[in-house]
């Protein structure tokens, strides 16, 4: 009985990183192919499943290699929940909205030349703010 219990724990521990890593790999593949899926529940569920498996392997009891695998699994399993948690954005109350007139602004362009928003008068404009570095 003790042996089978330990076998179950070890198996869970060994499978945990497989689930965690597969989830992360699939997530990144999907993102590069078609963009971020709207509903991310399933990804979170699998990440949490990997964590539950890790914890369960310790609770049930595991051989050392099952334990090592279970600990390793925690890191990829936490990656998605963590990035989703920090990716919420907040803007100030006075943020621009539909119907507002855009403010006058001055900046430098990619040639280092001064640019003022006067240059945009008289034509429709698409303005895109984006995050740097990627």
């Amino acid at each position: 009985m003790q042996m089978t219990r330990k076998t179950v724990g070890t198996t869970l521990g060994l499978l945990a990183p497989v689930v965690a890593i597969a989830t992360v790999v699939l997530w990144f593949r999907m993102n590069s192919a078609i963009g971020i899926p709207e509903d991310r529940t399933i990804w979170i569920v699998f990440s949490l499943l990997a964590i539950v498996m890790s914890v369960a392997s310790f609770v049930i009891g595991t051989r050392w290699f099952g334990g090592v695998a279970a600990v390793v699994a925690i890191f990829p399993a936490l990656l998605l929940p963590a990035t989703i948690a920090i990716s919420k954005q907040q803007v100030a109350e006075q943020a621009i909205k539909v119907g507002d007139t855009i403010p006058y602004f001055v900046a430098v362009d990619d040639q280092g030349k001064r640019f003022t928003s006067d240059a945009l008068a008289g034509t429709p404009v698409l303005i895109k703010f984006f995050r740097a570095h990627w």
Partner: peptide
């Protein structure tokens, strides 16, 4: 953010 602005500067 992506903004579409008309020729008068209105969002």
């Amino acid at each position: 953010t992506t903004l579409l602005v008309d020729k008068n500067g209105v969002v």
